[in-house]
Amino acid sequence: MKLTVNGKKRSYAGLPFKRLLDVLREDFGLTGTKEGCGEGECGACTVLVDGEPVNSCLVPVGQMEGAQVETVESLASAKKLSRLQSAFLEKGGAQCGICTPGMLMAAEAHRRAGGKKTRQAVCTAVSGNLCRCTGYKHIVDSVMAALKGRK
């Protein structure tokens, strides 16, 4: 089967019921996407599928034929952090970093969907992502800062 990952065409010939998360990490070497719970509760494995945030631990890769998958590795361009990533660096949105890839992808989905720039809307957008370090304030600060820079 064929799918697009981070803009690159990829083919996959393994078991169709392998989790997208494992295919990304093991078959494609994209270990930026993390596993925290394996049951869609923590959001650490969030990637974008056709622009929408999904838990990649809950997606059998067999469903990804022809899909556009985007992971945290796609955000920065050669040596330059995206606006969202820079905001996380400056505002302290990443601490231990394990929830960060998922958090960034959930926030990226919100940004691209033209989501509201209110703290409440940002909290809702990342409410499927658990963080145990930050208490969320700096994450929300980071996303807000990135959204403010948006036209």
Binding site: G40, E52, P53, V54, N55, L58, G128
Partner: peptide
């Protein structure tokens, strides 16, 4: 239902 990821899927 769940969070945005579960709602989307």
């Amino acid at each position: 239902v769940g969070g945005p990821q579960i709602q989307a899927r």
